[in-house]
Design a protein around this nucleic acid. Structure first.
Length: 201
DNA sequence: CCCTGATTCGC
DNA sequence: GCGAATCAGG
């Protein structure tokens, strides 16, 4: 694949929309995210701040100063070993992670903190679309059925079955990034807010 | 582990 | 110019 004009255009558009390099690469097809990033740089639009404000993913503006980078090692023609990798020491900081034992994730509506984002059209409060329910049922058929101990940070922690019996396990499918549940469960867990009555206390 | 963009450099 | 490999970070 080559960077034809419309491919470049698509690249520019999507990059401008704040799409990630991998998303763009997937859209274009035939290229990897690396190719996309490389192109983005060569086009000189790595800094998305150019003209229009990005939808939301605004870069924290690292204000990184990278003026005259001490370039260097010339004479690679003679240099016998131009290798530029002196074996990184990498102390592997990994501290003994406490591994929080997943605080029994009760499938209740969590507090929605969507800031300013316009919520998508919701059916009627407290209702879950049939599609979502169907999806969940399907997904649960293929659940990994993990035990509490088997859960990791990237396994869906949605409980299935009756905790009081042996007929209980956790979904265990790959979680949606950042979320505690897989896609299907996220869809039913993260409700906009039901008309639940406020519990006074 | 998944993902992100940034950079280098042989091609 | 291209992009895999790598780096650096979330």
């Amino acid at each position: 694949m080559s960077w034809t004009e419309d491919r470049v255009e698509t690249l520019k558009r999507m990059w401008g929309e704040g799409q990630s390099a991998s998303q763009i690469a997937k859209e274009l097809g035939g290229v990897t995210r690396n190719a996309v990033i490389g192109k983005v740089h060569r086009l000189g639009l790595s800094n998305r701040a150019g003209g229009s404000a990005p939808a939301a993913p605004v870069k924290p503006a690292p204000a990184k100063e990278k003026p005259a980078r001490a370039e260097a090692p010339e004479a690679r023609a003679d240099t016998p070993a131009p290798e530029r990798k002196p074996a990184e020491p990498r102390p592997a900081a990994a501290a003994p992670q406490p591994v929080a034992p997943a605080p029994v994730p009760v499938p209740r509506k969590p507090v929605l903190v969507t800031a300013g984002q316009p919520l998508p059209p919701q059916p009627s409060a407290n209702e879950i679309s049939p599609e979502a329910l169907a999806s969940v049922r399907e997904v649960e058929k293929t659940a990994m059925k993990l035990t509490l101990m088997e859960l990791t940070e990237r396994t869906c922690k949605w409980p299935i079955g009756d905790p009081a019996t042996q007929d209980f396990w956790f979904c265990g499918l790959p979680v949606q990034q950042g979320k505690p549940y897989c896609e299907a469960h996220v869809s039913v867990a993260f409700q906009p807010m039901s008309t639940r009555r406020d519990r006074k206390r």
